[in-house]
Design a protein around this nucleic acid. Sequence first.
DNA 1: TCTGGGGTCCTAGGACCC
DNA 2: TCTGGGGTCCTAGGACCC
Length: 419
Amino acid sequence: MYALCDANSMYASCEKIFDPAIRDKPVVVLTNNDGCICAACHIAKRLGVGKKFIPYFQVKDDLEKAGAVIRSSNYELYADISQRMMDTCSRFAPNSHIYSIDEIFHNYDGWEPPEGWFQHARAIRRAVWTEVRLPIGVGVGPTPTLAKAANHASKRIAGYRGVAVIDNEQTRQHILQNMELTDIWGIGSRLAQRLQGLNIYTPWQLAHANPSLIRKQFSVLVESTVYELQGVVKLTWDDVKAPKKEIYSTRSFGQRILEKNLLCQALIQHAGIAAAKLRRQNSLACVAVIFATNSPHDAQGYYRKSITHRFAIPTQDTTVIANICRQAVEQIFRKGVSFYRCGVGLIDLCDKAMFQQDFFTQFTDNSNLMACMDAINMRYGRNTVHVASQGFQQKFAMRREFLSPQYTTRLSDIPRIQC
DNA sequence: TCTGGGGTCCTAGGACCC
DNA sequence: TCTGGGGTCCTAGGACCC
């Protein structure tokens, strides 16, 4: 059996933990640069002002009318709360995999809790609430896709109240009949539209579709989804935990960038973030993609330029990738373009342990330096040490107008209780 | 006044080579 | 004269997820 634990409106719930004054109010959290809505608590959703990824300025008036509390993304806080949630959840299963900042998969693989699945799931939910004050939903099922579906049910289908277990036919039918196609993991709006063309309107109907026909009309992935909905495991634990094949770090700027050296600094910063992620999964990159664009909404037209660089020797060294950024910016930068977004992608990844070193090529090995940098940044926070060429003044730092304190990660922000 | 997230995977199509 | 194959690499964009 598999379980999926998923926080309820993670970011909005994190904001409420340390701020009792907003617990009964509609709370909405914005993305980077306060661009879009990315999370809304259930009160905001009920008032109809929590639509995900809608630009903030378009709904600003509605939010004000609803009396909503607006918050900028406070990643320092969310990352810390996330870690507490994961620590608590992972105590309950022999194998876990953190799937995103607010989701963790459990793999029980032959083991069954003596108290039964429902009680077990309830215990996880209760522990996270008691220890972290974060509301979560727990879904249990015989496949990862059904565990995801059960998790959806635990929050959205009446009667489940945070815990749903698919361990019999009636429950599987009831849950799959009461969900939308797009609620299923791997089915987005386009696939749902095409499925409806084949008279498949609900996940229950999808579970009864002919797998080979689905494979022919769509892809192996959709075929796997059909099997998974039937209860046949197609996503193995290795699939769920597979290392990434590409790693990107990209961001839009708080202010448009018009200078080449600032663009270069931003790119090098992304090189550092992407390379650190790469080292964390113990991979090497054969290719780097370095790009920058203006805003697609820009009146002067869309400008996008990307440079692909193939490394002579696969690397995970920040300084090597930073050097490529320095060269690439000469080709990417164009005078007069107001740059809005840039990033670095590392693709064509291979496992470091499998890499064969070339006997004849000489190269400097910075792996000790990188390991030291990672260790310091892990201990004292990201960006404590970095390559100097990414700059020290963040002129392109993102806008975070409605930022809450870093309650748990900064000494000066620790909550005080006055007696 | 102006404002529009970030990440991963996959594929189509063009350029280029043999 | 015109047409023909197959591979690799790069680029752009679509689809999906949170």
